[in-house]
């Protein structure tokens, strides 16, 4: 358990009656995200990826748990720490990696980069570089779901840093007023860049700020993919039933710095190590899988397959050509 989370705030489902194949799926996806991010970090170090690159390592349980309750047509929008969300949405690792390297086969034809990627086909609406700006956009997607009388929901992810942006509260107000089907997911990884939540945010839990707007919320152990899934199921059901928005505050942790260029001097090595040792979402699910009869060999095989997928993506991303010169003036407006 992480140091800042008080037990009473957290909903843990002790019931482990999950379908073993579901657990396998969750595990594979989390592992794919982790290996993908490790590779991205490696390519950044090699100078193959430029600009800002924000890795999701440590937070995998959040997006994978939530994604597991999504249905066809649901939409996702998030911040610049977006690689994990794209992979969770089943976007192709190759296309994501090729965008990171700024190549023509990237999801944005090399013109968006790490922070600005999209896939309309997969319901992933970005990838937004301005802290908090994705939150009203997520409510706008929910507005469209409602306007079109669908059963779909919008999932709008943002961090503890964005949770202090005014537009988040403008959006809470409207979403609650108009009963928009949106889950606001606060990925509270304890630091907004180098500033701890304690130093940036008044009050106790960020989710409680929804109270004033009449929005239901839950505070969840975001390092436990099953707890995330359970809470998401409740939240999604609430939204699909037309009861308006729902806030999930995921208590999570990022292992790496804010971006590749962040030495993370604002926290101790032992703080990070403690969490890796005790709360790692992938390792913990692995233990459950092993106890449920899945063999070490099977998991090793899976790990190797994922490594291969990621290596292929890395090769693809380096071999894909840079965008042609005429791309410079393409897609500024639709003619």
């Amino acid at each position: 358990m992480k140091k800042n989370i008080s037990k009473k705030d957290i909903n843990i489902n002790p019931n482990l009656n999950y379908d073993i194949n579901l657990l396998r799926k969750l595990y594979k996806k989390m592992l794919l995200i982790r290996r993908f991010e490790e590779k991205a970090g490696q390519l950044y170090g090699m100078g193959q990826i430029g600009g800002f690159c924000h890795l999701y390592i440590g937070q995998e349980a959040v997006v994978v748990g939530i994604q597991s309750v999504q249905i066809e047509g649901d939409t996702v929008v998030t911040s610049y720490r977006d690689h994990g969300h794209m992979i969770a949405c089943d976007m192709d690792s190759k296309g994501v990696m090729a965008e990171l390297t700024g190549r023509i086969d990237g999801y944005s034809r090399g013109k968006g980069g790490s922070m600005h990627m999209f896939s309309r086909e997969k319901g992933f609406f970005g990838g937004h570089g301005i802290v908090g700006a994705q939150v009203p956009i997520g409510a706008g997607l929910a507005f469209a779901h409602k306007y079109n009388s669908t059963n779909n929901i919008s999932i709008a992810y943002f961090g503890d840093g964005a949770a202090n942006q005014g537009q988040v509260y403008e959006t809470y107000n409207i979403a609650s007023l108009w009963k928009l089907p949106v889950i606001f997911v606060i990925e509270n990884n304890e630091y907004g860049m180098g500033t701890s939540v304690k130093r940036a945010s008044s009050g106790n839990n960020l989710a409680e700020r929804g109270k004033g707007y009449g929005i239901k919320f839950e505070i969840v152990d975001g390092m436990d993919v099953l707890a995330v899934r359970d809470a998401s199921e409740r939240a999604a059901e609430h939204c699909r039933a037309g009861k308006g928005p729902f806030i999930l505050e995921m208590k999570t942790y990022r292992y790496r710095g804010h971006s590749m260029s962040d030495p993370a001097n604002y926290r101790t090595r032992s703080e990070v190590d403690q969490i890796k040792k005790n709360s790692d979402p992938i390792e913990n699910l692995k233990q459950i899988l092993l106890k449920s009869g899945v063999t070490e060999d099977e998991l090793k095989l899976e790990n190797n397959k994922i490594k291969e997928t990621v290596n292929e993506a890395a090769i693809f991303a380096q071999e894909s050509p840079e965008p042609s010169i005429d791309e410079l003036f393409k897609d500024i407006t639709i003619n």
């Binding site: 609406f125 997520g138 997607l141 403008e170 007023l177």
Partner: peptide, 23 residues
Amino acid sequence: VIDTPITEHGFAGIGVGAAFANL
């Protein structure tokens, strides 16, 4: 025809999201 609260940043963003969804 929808009245909004006095929150330009919020409702402009909601409009943008709705437009991304083809409204």
